[in-house]
Simulated assay, not measured.
Amino acid sequence: MRLSIVAVGRLKDGPERELYLRYAKRIDDAGRAVALGPLTLSEIPEARQSSAAQRKTDEAQRLIDQASGADLLVLLDVAGKSFTSETFARWLAGRRDDGHRTIAFLIGGPDGHGESALARANLKMSLGPLTMPHGLTRIVLAEQLYRAATILSGHPYHRA
């Protein structure tokens, strides 16, 4: 099952991008054995409208458009469903086993997600109650996707 992160904003070159790429490569390597991956990243520019509502509406539509080929849309939101690493791995395996071919994880801009993205999401997921920079969100999500692949394959990376 292909995995895609679609995010507002761009990771700049440097340590954050390098760390993200490290986990993306690990997912591609470890995920093959459990039919997860590859992981792709699509980045869209932040909207420039004057109001937050207009920015959210514009970004939501562009996120949805960028993720149009995905079978499932998972929207990252602080108020979404929280998973342990093990339950997240089982959830991913369940979607894979149900025949889904692609999951897109949507990361909104600084103003949050627009109504159209919220309405289209198959799942609203939280990485925790803390607010974090969107670049760091990509890294944490990529690490958890890698961790899920290792849990499903029985690799010792995850030691709960």
Rank of each mutant, 00 (worst) to 15 (best):
L21Q: 15
R26Q: 11
G31C: 07
P15R: 14
A35S: 14
S50E: 13
L75A: 12
L92Y: 02
R17F: 08
L63C: 11
F88T: 01
G128T: 06
L72E: 11
L152K: 00
G108F: 09
Y146F: 14
D77E: 13
R101N: 13
L72P: 00
K81E: 14
P38L: 08
G109I: 02
P45G: 04
A149Q: 02
L39K: 03
R96P: 06
A93K: 11
P38R: 08
L72R: 15
T131E: 02
S126V: 07
S85C: 01
Y157H: 11
K81F: 09
P133S: 12
L118H: 10
P110S: 15
V74G: 00
S50C: 00
V8W: 02
R138H: 05
T102Y: 01
A79E: 14
R96V: 05
R147Y: 04
P133F: 02
S116N: 11
Q144H: 12
A60H: 06
V140R: 09
G109F: 05
E43N: 10
A160P: 12
A149D: 05
D98A: 15
G14Y: 08
Y20D: 06
D71R: 02
L36F: 08
L3R: 00
M1H: 04
A79V: 02
P156I: 01
R22D: 15
E143W: 03
V74M: 10
A67H: 07
L63W: 07
A67N: 10
G99M: 07
P15Y: 12
G80K: 04
A60K: 08
D77F: 06
S51L: 10
L11K: 03
E46D: 13
K124V: 08
A160E: 15
S51D: 13
G99S: 11
H100L: 07
A47M: 08
G80W: 08
K25A: 15
A119G: 04
G37K: 01
F83L: 12
A104D: 06
L141M: 07
G69R: 09
S50I: 09
G31V: 07
Q144V: 10
T150N: 05
I139P: 01
A142K: 03
P38N: 07
Y20P: 03
Q49L: 12
A67F: 03
A35N: 13
I103H: 04
G37R: 01
H113S: 11
G154E: 06
D29M: 03
A148K: 02
A89H: 02
E46W: 00
F88D: 00
I5K: 06
R17Q: 13
A7E: 01
R138G: 05
T40I: 08
L39G: 00
A53N: 12
R147T: 03
A117I: 03
T84F: 04
L152W: 04
V140K: 10
V6M: 12
G135K: 03
T57Y: 09
P133M: 06
P110M: 09
L123E: 14
R138C: 05
L39N: 02
G109Q: 02
Q49V: 00
E46L: 08
P110T: 11
K124G: 08
R17L: 15
K25R: 14
F105W: 13
A142Q: 04
S126Y: 07
G99E: 04
R2L: 10
A160H: 12
K12Y: 00
A70S: 14
W91K: 12
G114T: 10
T137I: 15
Q61C: 13
L76D: 05
R55N: 10
M132A: 09
R138A: 05
A35G: 11
